[in-house]
Design a protein around this nucleic acid. Structure first.
Lengths: 317, 317
DNA sequence: CTGAAAGCGCTTACAG
DNA sequence: CTGAAAGCGCTTACAG
């Protein structure tokens, strides 16, 4: 008891006994057990963080931003990769619940509402990235993907492209769908409606972009521009174009999403829609810790992506 | 008690009461508390994982490899970024100890032996990446950096380069030092001893490579080749060279380390020393879980990097 | 096959 | 200012 008091700086303690305790702690190299503490206080000071894939620089930056803030507040992060697999996302959600994390950050969930929402209910504090959920279940930070898709399509139409292909990413991605919506909308407004056959899903990786672009271009050689799910996909697609003898941007213009480092180091560099992911991660964690510490009004933050024009679209048709 | 028995599948249970228990568990949506379980069993089923920076694709791949294996064995990962700061590495080490993790994976520690070794002693199972420590304290997986440095230098000497500059990475990096050793050795063997003034530390990032290469080249314009701490640094340096009007590889040849995706997408693509980082991460976790589950003989795995020649050095002098 | 008791290492009231 | 008691939610022997 007395020891607990000095270590937690709680209640009055004579400086004499405080000294004695601190000495003993030092001599014995004593470290209090956080698990015992957690059991008594029902606080673990750990936050569950689920991302699709840490290997994607977009999510790596989010994790880093979130960890830096958690660090400031003395919270730890339990990291799970859902790997684009619904089964694994589901299992992670249950696991983190049993682990009694104080809060949850869930990035880009792929589960459908019917599966996801009941699982979220088990947590007292959760923040979701890139998915709409009822405000009483979670705070939300999301990128305005409809707007992003719109910007991408408008840009391509402006430089005279008319046959827009899309690599839309994982079939279960809500962002992917929202972007296609935005793209479709923009094309309709401009009176150049799209051919939906030119929109196909792909893995959200370099390899996904490479192979999917290859088959898409083989089937539809008339495509003059590609909007890609993210920069990894865009860079893969770029390579596929170059390898098959197409010129970029003369024959095919390419747009990505995210603005990871990779996008500005290829030749040609890739036009993209930028989001400051480190800041997104930091924001997610700040919102979460706010909630953990008692804020109750739900919050929703919407981030507009910014079009960064580079060489991959720097050419009028 | 009875409930514990059915949930953990331990001891004999009549199928009737098992049924009743399972039903109740389901009806109440009961989830056992892992923290209570941990307190009773002294096992947390979580592994501490410390990396310098998850934002570096090299470490992101390690984390992913480690997490995939942990997942198979039902372990969780507590992630900490040490951010190249000794103070934060130190704090993380203590925090994870208090958290009672079942094991620790420590990547590229920057602390000196006097600080590091006592902290490791507190853990029963630890695996260290890229640092030599006594076998009774930890298993070790490390890249043969001396050999990597040697290969890089030999390659440059073979294509006729004589004035080798080095961006050696963080001052406290053991890998960085080992590579410089290998480079120096190779140059001496070839009877072209190096000027140590051309070896300078830098942040292990794109920005670090860019700015440091800029100042280095300004001071020593006679440099005809650069060996860089990692690919991020190499790509930053490449950009600095191009921006200052140097041709790569004609004027300056560039070599990186790691073979991240970025290295093969720049123009010119960057020659590098490849290590399969996903496999490294998986290996680290396998060794650790072996130890956690009782293996006692220390283990050390040494990985030789593989020279991947690309356009950034594809030119004889 | 089933359950009562004690203990894991802390913290939270409550006495003194 | 200091300490004895009870409890957090599990598991591990031990009875019955």
């Amino acid at each position: 008891m007395t020891i607990s008091r000095v270590l937690n700086d709680k209640g009055e303690i004579s400086s004499a006994t405080r000294q004695r305790v601190l000495e003993a702690v030092h001599d014995l190299n004593y470290r209090p057990s956080r698990v015992a503490r957690s059991l008594a206080t029902h606080q673990t000071f750990t936050i569950g963080l689920i991302v699709p894939d840490i290997t994607n620089p977009f999510f790596a930056a989010i994790v880093r931003g979130a960890e830096d803030i958690a660090w400031e507040y003395n919270y730890n992060i339990l990291l799970c990769n859902s790997v684009e697999k619904q089964e694994r996302e589901n299992a992670a959600l249950q696991l983190l619940e049993e682990t009694q994390v104080d809060g949850l950050i869930l990035c880009s969930p792929r589960l459908c509402d019917a599966q996801l929402l009941p699982l979220l209910k088990a947590y007292s504090s959760v923040v979701v990235f890139n998915r709409q959920v009822p405000g009483e279940l979670a705070d939300v930070v999301r990128i305005d993907d409809v707007d992003g898709g719109r910007q991408a399509a408008n840009h391509l139409l402006q430089i005279g492209r008319r046959v827009l292909g899309c690599l839309t990413g994982p079939a279960h991605s809500f962002s992917g769908r929202a972007r296609v919506q935005g793209i479709t909308l923009a094309a309709e407004v401009a009176a150049y409606p799209l051919n939906p056959d030119l929109q196909i899903p792909c893995l959200p990786t370099w390899e996904g972009g490479y192979t999917t672009a290859q088959t898409l271009l083989k089937t539809y050689p008339e495509i003059d521009s590609l909007i890609c799910y993210n920069d990894l996909v865009a860079v893969g697609a770029l390579q596929a174009c170059l390898d098959s003898g197409k010129r970029v941007p003369e024959d095919i213009a390419i747009v990505g999403f995210d603005d990871i480092l990779l996008a500005r180091t290829t030749r040609p560099a890739v036009t993209t829609l930028r989001v400051s992911t480190y800041e997104v991660g930091a924001k997610l964690m700040r919102l979460l810790l706010d909630r953990v510490q008692g804020r109750s009004e739900p919050d929703e933050v919407v981030i507009k992506p910014e079009l960064i024009i580079r060489a991959s679209t720097a050419c009028n048709h």
